[in-house]
Amino acid sequence: MTASHRRTAPILGADGSETPITPRWHLGRWIVGTLAVLVVVWLATAIIFNENIRWNRVFDYLFSPRILDGVVVTIWMSVLATVIGLSLGVVLAVMKLAKNPVLQWIAAGYIWFFRGTPVLVQLIFWYNLAFLFPYLTLQVPFTQIGVQWDTNQVMTSFMAALLGLGLNLAAYFAETVRAGIQAVDRGQTEAALAGGMTHMQTMRIIVLPQALRIIIPPTGNEFISMLKTTSLVVVVAGSDLMTNASQIYKQNNLIIELLIVASLWYMLLTAVATYFQSKLERRFGSDAVRLVRGPGFVQKFLRNGQQAQTATESIATNSEKATTR
């Protein structure tokens, strides 16, 4: 960054003389840069001009209805599974920090189980829940009042995907939320308790709103990761992007072409999600961390860090402008 910020103004001597600066050619950088470009171009041409890839078929399928349907399902599945994962993750984190040891153990057990088993196994398990419980029954105990569903009808591949991905994310996210809650200054809790709030109110009104600001940036990562994890749903035929692409290539054997189609869509979705994530981070990121920390050293440190960051950013944008000119 600083290396590209090149001084152009001449150097002033004590007698008022101005001596210009002759720029230095960084020969080593040029050699390494050229080699790197050659390698990248070689790899790219090896793929782009590969005669075994029928690019026209890639473009045929890129906007085909089945692929587009798959994209829509993938987006929905990612959003819903993330929502399930985040909400349940918050509940688990609060349980893990609860005073009641039973709640702590249940949360710890849940997290251990869902982090300890592969998500692929979980997906297949949910999809085949009917082997375990042919009917799902909600019934008031000791009466005949209740409702019953056929498990195979409830547990569609979409539902299995949501449960498998959502419950799994919850286990991971609980740890993030717990860290966020613990990062909120202890003084906030004390002030709330001193103000007459119960522990539940303190958590709900004072601590969680601040903890959530801290954990918003990681949620963006979780969502981006979820976009691609949905491709695992292929094992339960979830009619998402990957499932539809694979069903097409199983018929016409254009495996690589359809993988490229799917990859292009995943990359587009990721790019869009990344854009929103960076907006979220700018809105909540460092500012929120500064907000929840007590004043004093940490606050000053973060504020200085922020100033330094904006300073380097402005230098970077200046040098970018300079190079485009």
């Binding site: 002030a191 539940m200 601040q210 929840v292 004043p295």
Partner: peptide, 24 residues
């Protein structure tokens, strides 16, 4: 119980060294 403590503390004001204003 928790709510007895809350009710008791509601009648006592406390001011802390580090202010502890709700940051959000």
């Amino acid at each position: 119980r928790d709510r007895d403590f809350a009710k008791f503390r509601a009648g006592i004001g406390m001011v802390f060294q580090r202010f502890n204003l709700y940051a959000h």
